[in-house]
Design a protein around this nucleic acid. Structure first.
Ligand code: FES
Ligand code: FES
Lengths: 152, 152
DNA sequence: AAAATACTTAACTGATTTTGTCAAGTATTT
DNA sequence: AAATACTTGACAAAATCAGTTAAGTATTTT
């Protein structure tokens, strides 16, 4: 139930590796591939999307690789997943591109909407910075929406 | 991203229709099919699973149909989805049946685990009773875990 | 007893999505 | 010029999803 695709998962793990080089050291694909055990070809596909989305930039030539385009604290998990998997839409009814004619009379619409908001709040709150710090996320749950800092 | 299957969605909607007959009136498949616009054959498949799981029971013969096996307040959305879509597992690593050898060294494992907990808390908290009452779920989010009542 | 209603079960199939691979580049530095 | 490294698009096997088909069994009403 509610599975995240490997593309999204690999994407976050790749971004973590790139974040480790922040702000100076370019991290090349081979290094990411080896550390996270994901094929180079598949990573190329993933990193390409993330680059076009402006989350990372690339440096060519020997010694090149990928660099974070922003501070780790400014890149949320949501940012990454959005590019790789499209907008969060628990149901097709909630997908702007699909929509649903039953919305007005549907008894579950608000339920799924609330669940989506719950997930979105969480993913918006957690950033690469949190991953770098090795947080446990135990207390993220209820504080996510408070807007204030999050307990470690 | 993170799509719920139609089976799960239809299942919740079907359970809502059955809940409307609680505690006495059996609701037949045809009525559910018409009100929720889901094929009878597909519903049969879904209701069968829910019956074997003990969430509903069936009454045969003319005037028969399906009845809730418990009070609407005692059946959570999580109960329904669990039967139709299996256990919540954002990633295969979190699925008991699959597992992952990288768990110990993985930088994202705790992240997905926390997200899963977030979702599970929510789905465990909402019941058919809430749907019957037409709640908006606006305030469920942060109060889900408090254990106490939920704001309408 | 017969007919009508209604649930039960298993098998099957087409469509879609996921999860990658392959091939042929382009760009930069040493 | 050679080595390194990113870039892009096409392709395809595998898995999952969504739904149908078909052939029942069980119960009540007349
Ligand atoms: S069926 Fe589309 S909103 Fe419920
Ligand atoms: S790769 Fe399995 S836990 Fe992260």
């Amino acid at each position: 139930m509610l599975r995240l695709s490997t593309k999204g998962q690999y994407g976050v793990r790749a971004m973590y590796e790139i974040a480790r080089g922040y702000p100076e050291r370019p991290v090349n694909i081979k290094e990411i591939s080896e550390r996270q055990d994901v094929s180079i070809h598949y990573l190329e596909q993933i990193l390409n999307k993330l680059r076009r989305a402006g989350l990372i930039r690339s440096v060519k030539g020997p010694g090149g690789g990928y660099l974070l385009a922003k501070m780790p604290e400014e890149i949320s998990i949501s940012d990454i997943l959005l590019e790789l998997e499209g907008p969060l839409a628990i149901t097709s009814c909630l997908n702007p591109e699909e929509g649903c004619v039953r919305v007005e009379i549907c008894v579950t619409h608000l339920l799924w909407k609330a669940l989506g908001r719950q997930i979105e709040d969480f993913l918006n709150t957690v950033t690469l910075g949190d991953l770098l710090q090795g947080k446990s996320f135990d207390d993220f749950t209820m504080l996510a929406k408070s807007g204030k800092g999050v307990v470690v």
